[in-house]
Design a protein around this nucleic acid. Structure first.
Lengths: 340, 340
DNA sequence: TCTGGCACTCCAGCGGTCCGAGTGCCAGCA
DNA sequence: TGCTGGCACTCGGACCGCTGGAGTGCCAGA
């Protein structure tokens, strides 16, 4: 149908225009700026239909149209074309991320990069512990009855916990314990740690059992919220920009939600590294994110996502561009983590 | 002089009133709310003098007076009394910080706590590496020519770096190296590491020398900016609150400066754990902080501050309360770090 | 099925007015 | 000498009404 086709082109034009100008877009402006081949009057008719169907809306009678959440959703699913990054952007990414010195650094740079590329608030999750594998498990005696357990994962995360041990320990005992634990856990996915732990205790020499039990217990504790997941946030300054324009009341609830982390982590829980997820406006259950959109994707070398990253911004955002940026950064982060 | 004395009481009242109401304060309101024992007319005369001297100013002719930076400075130095925290606040602090599981957790909780207590943006610096001592230095072979060096300090910081080693290494060599390094560095302040390194290389067995050199070099690298200093920021949502009221243009430059970290770190460089530092408005060299005040103090168990923490907010802030909160939190953080 | 024309609506911006808060000054009083 | 009450003055913010322009919906005609 030539009809429907044009109507969709009108919708696309409305979204694009509104995203770039932030003004409700009228039929005349649309006809002038986009080559739709018809007069403003015809566009008006199409707009009336689009409004009827819920894709666009009028702030008030004598204003232009603005896309609704439904309109953005349709745009993202059906109308937007992948916008490849410019060569300059690609080299910028490489330059920015190269020379990162450790995981903290990689993620810190990523979040800044993402914020800069998209001009939105960027969010990067640390690699989930349970999906990482143990690279090394170190024990440092603090006193005779306390050990510092340091867990180093293959993704570069380091977690430390103090373990209160039930019996006094000597340096050699600790060394023995360390060897045993590393023999068991090194290379294993942390998700499997809970399976291995009981067998390990039973199989251990008698004098080590209480120690093994204490350390394993602590190890398992680190695998639950909240230490399991961590988040880096950047580019909040981008919210201050057009705050009044984009967020009706204030950006306060949004900033609070971001600092809460939990909200974002819940959104991130669903990411996977194959496809970019977009969550628009009212689709977000959390109230504070109701006026915002969230674009995210998982990163990780293989099939399973180690963690997620994304951007949060007004529903009026450049979805195509942000999706491309998010995906590109995720890919680089994945590579970097695979290397080290 | 009874004169001067009353004038100062007027200034104090102006600051207090303006801080709590955010309205320029007039002579009548002042006479009504504060028991100054004189009529509005007299207060007006005092105000004229205070304005003459530069402590207060009028936004426009028919408005009340507002403290200037100089006024706040005087208030902080001479007029404000220490405001002890309420019992509820004290227990809140303990409750909040107890149960912290590692350094990251302690600092994360501190920053949230501080933001909540003061309703300002809170900033907490990680313990400076060079002022920390080595608790343990771990080496994990990644491949025959690459080692992962993990540095654990007595303050709980963990830094990791990949060391490219010039020769292929075996497990035993690594063990030897680890023992040697720990024998030398464990317990030593990192600031002294650069002194010890050369001697260590020379004193090492011949076959270890290139390795020792490589690892020491990497170790020294971690002691310079930017990894030397790290920052946690929280409570940025508090900026969104009365943004229009407190920050004329927008909060954007301020948020950017905070994310830069460098700016804040420079301010933090001067902290020491004995006294709270207050930097008001124009006193801050950095342009973005020109309309803001910064209240900070060092934390640390002993004499030397391990790091700093503080809050950033509008010059119109509750200095007495914020100073008390900052100091209290710093004290707890100091204790917590000393314990572990 | 599209187009141009037309009447209609409604917001944003502008200028003018008014009110009240706050001031400075001055004369009188302790 | 210092405090007070009175008074005239200033000025910004709120309120109001107007107008212009952008944008729409509808309709008749191509």
């Amino acid at each position: 149908m030539a009809h429907d086709d044009r109507r969709l082109r009108v919708l696309r034009a409305i979204v694009q225009d509104y995203v770039s100008t932030n003004d409700p877009v009228g039929s005349k402006a649309l006809a002038a700026r986009y080559d739709l081949g018809v007069s403003p009057a015809t566009i008006r008719n199409d707009m009336a239909v689009l409004e009827e169907e819920g894709y666009i809306t009028q702030p008030h009678t004598s204003a232009g149209r603005v896309p609704t959440d439904k309109g953005y959703r349709f745009f993202v699913d059906r109308l937007s074309t992948v916008k490849p990054l410019s060569a300059a952007e690609r080299t910028a990414i490489e330059k920015f991320l190269d020379g990162a010195v450790d995981l903290h650094d990689v993620l810190g740079r990523s979040v800044r990069l993402l914020a800069q590329l998209t001009r939105q608030v960027a969010v990067v999750q640390y690699p989930t512990l349970s999906r990482s594998a143990v690279r090394h498990l170190e024990l440092v005696p603090l006193s005779t009855s306390r050990l510092l357990m340091v867990l180093i994962t293959d993704t570069g995360r380091v977690e430390q916990r103090v373990v209160e041990v039930p019996v006094d320990t000597e340096a050699e005992t600790v060394a023995e314990l360390r060897t045993l634990l590393n023999a068991t856990f090194t290379g294993a996915k942390l998700a499997e740690a809970s399976d291995k732990a009981p067998g390990l205790v039973e199989g251990a020499p008698l004098h080590l059992r209480p120690l093994v039990a204490a350390v394993s217990a602590t190890l398992l504790e680190t695998l639950v919220e909240p230490s399991e997941d961590r988040l880096v946030i950047g580019g909040t300054a981008n919210l201050a920009q057009g705050s009044a324009l984009d967020f009706p009341g204030t950006v306060r609830p949004l900033l609070e939600a971001l600092e809460e982390q939990v909200v974002v982590l819940r959104l991130m829980a669903e990411v996977d590294s194959s496809a970019v997820i977009v969550s628009i406006g009212e689709e977000n259950q959390h109230e504070a994110l109701t006026g915002a959109s969230f674009v995210s994707v998982g990163y990780g070398s293989g099939d399973e996502a180690l963690g997620g990253l994304g951007v949060v911004g007004p529903t009026r955002m450049d979805y195509a561009g942000n999706m491309a940026a998010v995906r590109a950064v995720a890919r680089y982060v994945g590579h970097l983590l695979a290397e080290s």
